[in-house]
C-alpha cells in the first residue's frame, strides 16, 4: 500500500513547529525572564539594608548572607543533605505505594468504592497536624520525619494516579481486550503509560508537599536538617544563617521541580505537540 503524496503532505505541520518551538524555548533568552523578579527582590533587599529599615541583627545584608554560605558551608551542606535524603526516602516509599495502588483503584470500580471516602478524609489532614502523634509513636529522629513526608506525598500521588487512569480513552482498553491482552499487559503497556503524565503531576505535588513537611518536621522532631538549622540559628541570633537556610530551601525546591519537569518531558515525549502550548 503506497502512501499517497496527499496523505503524506497532510502530516500536521503544527507538530513539527511545536517541536522546534519546544526545543528552542528551553534555552532561549526568554527563559532568563524568570530571573527578573528575583533580581528585583535582591535589589529591594539591598536597599532595605542600606536604609536600615530593620536593625542589621534582624535583617542581614545580602553580603552577610553570602558570607554565611562561605563560613558555614559545611553546616549548610550537611543539613541540606539530611533534609534532601529524608524527602527522597519518604517520597520514594510513597511513590512505590501510591502508584500501584492508584493504578488498581483507577481500574477497578470496587476498589474505588472501597477506598474513596477514606482517601478523601485522610488527604484533608495536614501532615503537620500529625507531628505530635508521630513524636509519640516514633520519638525524636528520622522515623517521624520520614513518616510525615510519606503521608504528605502519598495523597497527591495516589489521587493523581487514579485521575490519570480514569482519563484513558475507552477505545484503547477495547483494543487490548479485543487482542486478548492479559491483565498484566494492559496494566504495563496501557494503563501505566496512559497515567504517566498524571503520575508526574502527582510527583511534583508530592515532592513539594514533602519538602514543606520536612522543614517543619525538622523544627520539632529531629536534630538535623535545614529546619533544625534555621530554628537553631534563631536561638543563637544568627539571622544571616536563617536567611541562608531559607535561600537554600527555595533553591532546592526549584531544582527538584525543574528536575521532575525535565524527567517528565523525557518519559512522556510522546506527548510533545499533543498538548496545548501557551502562547
Amino acid at each position: 500500500m503506497a502512501v499517497s503524496a496527499l496523505e503524506a503532505a497532510s502530516v500536521p505541520p503544527i507538530v513539527a513547529r511545536a517541536r522546534q518551538a519546544a526545543r528552542a524555548s528551553r534555552f532561549a533568552p526568554k527563559r532568563l525572564l524568570g530571573l527578573l523578579p528575583l533580581l528585583a527582590l535582591l535589589v529591594a533587599w539591598q536597599l532595605a539594608t542600606w536604609a536600615e529599615v530593620y536593625p542589621p541583627v534582624l535583617l542581614p545584608s545580602p553580603e552577610r548572607v553570602a558570607m554565611a554560605f562561605v563560613v558555614d558551608y559545611h553546616d549548610i551542606l550537611f543539613n541540606a543533605l539530611a533534609s534532601v535524603t529524608r524527602v527522597i526516602v519518604g517520597v520514594s516509599i510513597a511513590f512505590c505505594v501510591a502508584v500501584p495502588a492508584g493504578l488498581m483503584i483507577g481500574r477497578y470500580r470496587t476498589l474505588d468504592m472501597l477506598s474513596d471516602w477514606t482517601i478523601q478524609i485522610f488527604r484533608s489532614v495536614p501532615p503537620i497536624s500529625l507531628i505530635p502523634m508521630a513524636l509519640l509513636f516514633f520519638g525524636i529522629g528520622d522515623k517521624p520525619a520520614i513518616v510525615l513526608i510519606f503521608l504528605a506525598a502519598l495523597w497527591p500521588l495516589l489521587i493523581n494516579t487514579i485521575f490519570g487512569v480514569r482519563g484513558i480513552e475507552r477505545t484503547l482498553i477495547k483494543v487490548a481486550r479485543a487482542a486478548r491482552a492479559s491483565e498484566w499487559l494492559i496494566f504495563r503497556d496501557i494503563i501505566l503509560p496512559a497515567a504517566m503524565p498524571a503520575v508526574f503531576t502527582g510527583l511534583r505535588l508530592g515532592i513539594g508537599g514533602g519538602w514543606l513537611t520536612v522543614v517543619t518536621a525538622e523544627m520539632i522532631a529531629v536534630k538535623s536538617g535545614l529546619g533544625y538549622m534555621i530554628l537553631n540559628a534563631q536561638l543563637t541570633f544568627r539571622s544571616e544563617l536563617i536567611v541562608a537556610g531559607i535561600v537554600i530551601i527555595g533553591a532546592i525546591g526549584l531544582l527538584a521541580d525543574q528536575g521532575i519537569r525535565a524527567l517528565r518531558t523525557h518519559v512522556c515525549r510522546w506527548q510533545e505537540g499533543l498538548t496545548a502550548a501557551a502562547e
Binding site: E169, A179, L185, A194
Partner: peptide, 26 residues
C-alpha cells in the same frame, strides 16, 4: 481482529510498536 472507527492507536507507542501490539498480546 478488530479495526476501530477512531483507529484506537496508543499515543505513547511508535507506529512500529502499535503494529506489534496484537502480536505481543498473543
Amino acid at each position: 481482529s478488530v479495526v476501530f472507527q477512531d483507529h484506537g492507536l496508543f499515543p505513547w507507542m511508535t507506529v512500529r510498536k502499535n503494529v506489534a501490539f496484537n502480536m505481543k498480546a498473543a
